[in-house]
Amino acid sequence: MTFSKDSTQDRSAFAQTGDARGVARVSRETINAIAVAVICIALLLGARFINPALGSWSQVETVLVLGSFLVVLSFGQGLVILTGGLDLSLPAVITLGGIMATNWIGMTDPTAWYLLPVVLLACAGVGLVSAIGIVWLRVPPFIMTLAMSIIVLSALLGYTRGSPRGGSPDAATALMKSSVLGLPSVIVFVIGFVIVGWLFQSRSVAGRYLYAIGTNLDAARIAGVPVVLMQMVPYVISAVCAGIVGIMLVGYSNGATLRMGDDYLLPSIAAVVIGGSSILGGRGTFLGTVGGALLLTTLGTIISAIGLQIGLRTIIEGLIVLTALLLLREELFQKLGSLWR
């Protein structure tokens, strides 16, 4: 690995001529995002041939609604991964958001929508603690978020005495169950979310700083990036996203459980990776991640509609992640590039 790094140095040191190379490399991520989207659509349409009930508009809606959780969640995870970290506390924070929404708001007054921001603030607090541990105390992100996850889940276990109660606040139910202009309102919400998230990651000053940090922390510091602050931001955002997902899940299933977040951790990482981001940080776009999240959800929906048993479904999912990884290898792109020339 280190040798290949060296060869990059040599390559660039001697690159004096030629024009197309830079552009090709930078737009790789865009191509990747488009490819993932195309595969999604092809899958949905292709599914029609297997079963006419599949590929209908209502099924697209189902995919979008189910995918909305993963899209929101993997935005935060994507930002953390962009800076070279990893957030393992997502399931715990999802559960925190869900349980606060049901046990705390739902019990007292389901109409108290104005308390939802307080829930998100609490989640942000968890993210902040993780961030402080990682940036100031220099605990590796993997360990810090893992420990926070264990701590938060245990606190929730104690708080609910093992059995969460209460129902969904009206605002959460409305988000998940109502519709706007004939579309489920959650789809409208997620479209808005994607636009804001894309603007943040690709077009904002803060977004650029995150890329810089993920690429090379030392160089970013020297270039005047506020590295301490900007290393902390993704963890807070990620926790808030997890909180939103918790509230969404509560609205969707009208209740919270202590394990409601468990199934989302690995998909959130998988969505980011399939979307073309480097797990080492510094590479990737949010649109790619959205594509990855929708692809995973589409596959899940189709496979379960086909009627495969859950074990085979899981195996296929794993194989897809693996194939994506093998295809996305940098070397492969270079090889393909040299073939075209």
Partner: peptide
């Protein structure tokens, strides 16, 4: 290489 350029960015 290590303190100057940010590879992957334009």
């Amino acid at each position: 290489k290590t303190e100057g350029i940010l590879t992957g960015l334009t």
